[in-house]
Design a protein around this nucleic acid. Structure first.
Lengths: 239, 239
DNA sequence: ATCGTATGTTAGTCCATACTAACTCTTAAG
DNA sequence: CTTAAGAGTTAGTATGGACTAACATACGAT
């Protein structure tokens, strides 16, 4: 017994190491724009060298998790997408649990979930989900894929896309930068908050918005990381 | 930036990988008998080849976590012991949390905690502990070291050490084998249960015990994995 | 005191993962 | 249409961690 080859002890569930899982998530995210995931983009997102990504793409390809077109980029296969969605589900459920059951701030949970998602069993994640009443969104407003890998990734507008005078409901905010999240929280920007664009500087300059009566300036970088759904004042069925 | 050498991404907190942490825990456990941890024993406990243990001992030694005496075995250094106790604290708090907050059975949590303990931040573990009111024992009766690494590892007797007629309170049970735990649970053996030795076969044969009025036979292997504190009927201060 | 078995260690491989350096494509600018 | 910059890949190296096979040590039994 115990003839398991080398890395077996570090492997969970589906025979994927934590690293490999991170790549799948990264590729999934990059792919959302429609284009295959670019090597350099994945490298930048994960903070590693492009050459390392090339290497990993070959391994993932061998495992049937991605299709790689040389010099073009990678796309997830069916299997790869399923794995990525499972991981994202884990991540978001864990984040939700940490916030609602253990009192973490929404700016603190991404990193923690990042580490836990690789070790947590499906059983644990499902128990957390059940304890929370099977939430459909995480604390940042991101949709939680179902255990069958179904997720509503509708294309969202960001504040940067709104016209002056428009009012919108915040649906979701980018969760990757805890400083940014604290900054948003300080202004009262969180899922379901209502924002109104008061002014916009030309040439993609900062946007002035009103949140709960207070005016704030948002740089483009920030504005484009807050996703909203315009509130239809003029009747034009908001679907 | 990101000149971090290779394994940095898999490393948590104190620059130790999950594997290395497992070794420390194993060595800590083996050492409890007073003797340095034997290579083969560690290998058996972790399910790996003895040669792999030799290799890891050298790495741990280089990191100042163990003292290795060639051909003799390993002992934890101060630092190593602290690391091991931190890990054990994590493990036991996580087990406790899973049982009391997420409805896991005591026979299901060892494996899960084994994986989570490497990814969970100190912050998370302390929040779990706080949520539980800072428990001092895990669900199997094992003491939880404090965050300063203090633990009451008093030498315990097992049922196998008791004489016929003696009554004892179950203090703790071995947690490594979930089948064994279910077997104990079925008999009503759990921390704080009272058992009485009704009979003992000679030559280390099975022990007959009474638990909550019912009689059961326990093999030596089982009996020696249930730790008890004799109940002093004859007055002779139970310390 | 010796010797054989247990136990332990070294040597040589392997794989995953990362890196740098050097090379190769792709593509946009002219 | 050419070409150079930027994107991507390969080659070569390192480290952690595991394996097997072969060698080394310790120690209890004779």
């Amino acid at each position: 017994m115990k003839k398991t080859p080398a890395t077996a002890r570090t492997v969970r569930r589906g025979a994927l190491t934590g690293q490999a899982e991170d790549y799948l998530k990264a590729i999934y995210e990059m792919e959302q724009g429609g284009e295959p995931a670019a090597t350099n983009a994945v490298a930048a997102l994960l903070g590693i060298a492009p050459a390392s990504v090339s290497g990993m793409l070959q391994r993932l390809s061998r495992l049937g998790l991605v299709h790689v077109e040389r010099y073009r980029g990678a796309r997830l296969t069916h299997m790869g997408r399923r794995a990525a969605l499972q991981l994202i589900r884990r991540h978001r459920i864990i984040e939700s649990y940490l916030v609602t059951r253990l009192g973490f701030g929404w700016d603190e949970v991404d990193e923690e979930a990042e580490r836990l998602e690789h070790g947590a069993s499906t059983e644990l994640v499902e128990r957390m989900a059940a304890a929370l009443g099977h939430p459909t969104e995480d604390p940042h407003g991101a949709p939680i894929p179902t255990s069958d890998g179904v997720v509503d990734e509708r294309r969202l507008q960001s504040i940067a896309d709104l016209a002056v005078g428009q009012t919108a409901r915040v649906v979701r905010v980018s969760d990757r930068d805890s400083e940014f999240l604290r900054y948003l929280a300080a202004m009262g920007i969180r899922p379901n908050a209502t924002v109104k664009v008061a002014d916009r500087a030309p040439f993609d300059g900062p946007v002035t918005i009103t949140v709960r009566g207070a005016r704030h300036q948002l740089g483009v970088a920030a504005a484009s990381r807050v996703y909203v759904e315009p509130v239809a004042r003029t009747r034009r069925a908001a679907k």
